[in-house]
């Protein structure tokens, strides 16, 4: 009996994660550009389902949601860079870093304060890492794959005035939405997922 219960919970978890992945993919459609930033940097809240999954089942669950979100996006929209989807790959890396950092910090510091600190520090870490990744990895890869090559000063300008503020603003919006959302959902989730 006990084993049967855990099996069903495992199945529920598997299904819930795929539904969260599906809703993350859908939420990506409600994106909006930020005035003043390049058009390819669009803000969406598709990190929210991944965060929900992370707070219920741990960071691996969140990373799985990020993975499915980007895989679905790749299947439905393809990629500019052919077989190696750089855009989806960088979204996956950024999202995974964000949720993992948030999770571990809010585990260390309890309560609302931990949540705030977690999201804040996650925003900073993601911004720094994605800025570096864009400058040293993604832009060279774009130049390799589709010959989209930028001179160093232009690359620096795009990264500093485009990618970096974009990640800060995105983190800010996610924090703004996720905290009230999570606080409202928490009682429900605790009642229903007491086993995890």
């Amino acid at each position: 009996m006990q084993q049967q219960m855990t099996e069903r919970h495992h199945l529920t978890k598997t299904i819930f994660l795929s539904l969260l992945g599906g809703s993350a993919f859908l939420i990506q459609y409600f994106d909006f550009p930020i005035p003043g930033l390049p058009a390819f940097l669009k803000i969406d809240f598709s990190e929210i389902p991944a965060l929900i999954g992370t707070f219920i089942y741990g960071p691996v669950a969140g990373i799985i949601i990020e993975f499915f979100k980007n895989l679905l996006h790749f299947l439905f929209h393809g990629s500019e860079t052919g077989a190696i989807p750089l855009g989806q790959l960088s979204n996956f890396v950024a999202g995974s870093i964000f949720i993992t950092v948030t999770y571990f910090i809010s585990k260390k510091v309890k309560g609302l304060k931990g949540l705030l600190w977690g999201l804040g520090i996650a925003t900073c870490v993601t911004t720094i890492l994605m800025t570096l990744a864009n400058y040293f990895v993604l832009f060279p890869l774009y130049s390799l794959l589709i010959h989209l090559t930028f001179a160093d000063p232009e690359k620096l300008a795009i990264v500093l005035y485009g990618v970096a503020p974009f990640n800060v603003i995105k983190g800010f919006f996610i924090t703004l939405i996720f905290i009230p959302l999570y606080l409202k959902m928490k009682p429900y989730l605790e009642r229903h997922i007491s086993f995890s």
Binding site: I15, F16, L19, L20, P49, I177, L181, M185
Partner: peptide
């Protein structure tokens, strides 16, 4: 979007439970 996302996630969870069962 907060009042849209909360019911969406809760119903996704219910659906997952039902489908697992």
């Amino acid at each position: 979007y907060i009042p849209v996302l909360i019911p969406l996630f809760i119903s996704a969870f219910r659906r997952a439970e039902e489908l697992a069962l």
